[in-house]
């Protein structure tokens, strides 16, 4: 437990010291939020209708940004192999690495989502549902992305493969999340969607760390 915490704190310290790089997800989010009205026109009705989808797609793409370097530097300097030599459970270390990815890419997006929602005229009654959906959904994005990063670790062109691997797997998250926000805008019940997202989160938390550990292991063999 303390080792997991230590790794988490180290990753976060590194992220803070690399300030500029860690801000990339936010920059990306706002680039999308600013470019979309420029592209489709400033009409409030149209923007309100596509707002949940745009924010979610931006969150998804933002989570892809930092994936390339999730395990690669540790692999190149040999730290990753040390994970297996020590007596710590590797899955725990993988979990803490994925958690730090979420804290660095997911949490800033969640924090700034209300601002983005205002800029896209999202109906106020759907804001809370958007926030909840991001809170449940962005960890799933980090988990699936982390799995893809672990799978592509041993290749030279991980950056090309990552989106192809991530995109089919996150389809359900995107559907349930935007469905919930759209339902909230129409004052329809959102429980079913959010409940299904929670189920996905539980499934991802249980399966992804194991699969990612197996993938890492095969990659460093």
């Amino acid at each position: 437990m303390s080792a997991m915490l230590a790794l988490l704190l180290r990753d976060l310290r590194l992220a803070i010291r690399h300030g500029g790089e860690s801000l990339m997800p936010l920059v990306f989010l706002f680039a999308v939020i600013i470019l979309v009205p420029l592209g489709v026109g400033p009409g409030p009705n149209l923007l309100a209708a596509i707002a949940p989808g745009m924010i979610w797609v931006a969150a998804l793409l933002a989570s892809l940004l930092a994936l390339e370097n999730l395990f690669r530097p540790d692999h190149e300097d040999g730290t990753l192999e040390q994970w297996w030599l020590g007596h710590l459970p590797v899955t725990g270390l993988v979990i803490s690495r994925l958690l730090s990815h979420w804290l660095v890419t997911g949490v800033p997006v969640i924090l700034f989502a209300p601002l983005a929602a205002q800029m896209l005229y999202l109906p106020p009654q759907s804001l809370s549902v958007l926030m909840i959906s991001l809170l449940i959904g962005t960890p799933i994005l980090s988990l699936i992305g982390g799995l893809a990063a672990a799978l592509t670790l041993g290749t030279n062109r991980g950056s090309v493969l990552l989106p192809i691997l991530v995109f089919p797997l996150v389809v359900p998250v995107l559907i349930f999340a935007t469905g919930a926000v759209a339902a909230a805008a129409d004052d329809l019940p959102v429980r079913a969607n959010l409940g299904l997202m929670l189920a996905l989160l539980v499934l991802a938390i249980t399966l992804v760390p194991l699969a990612a550990t197996a993938a890492l292991r095969l990659n460093i063999e």
Binding site: L151, T152, G154, T155, R157, L161, I164, L165, P168
Partner: peptide
């Protein structure tokens, strides 16, 4: 396609 790409990338 992802499976094929991943296999081919190694």
């Amino acid at each position: 396609l992802g499976i094929m790409g991943l296999y081919a990338a190694f």
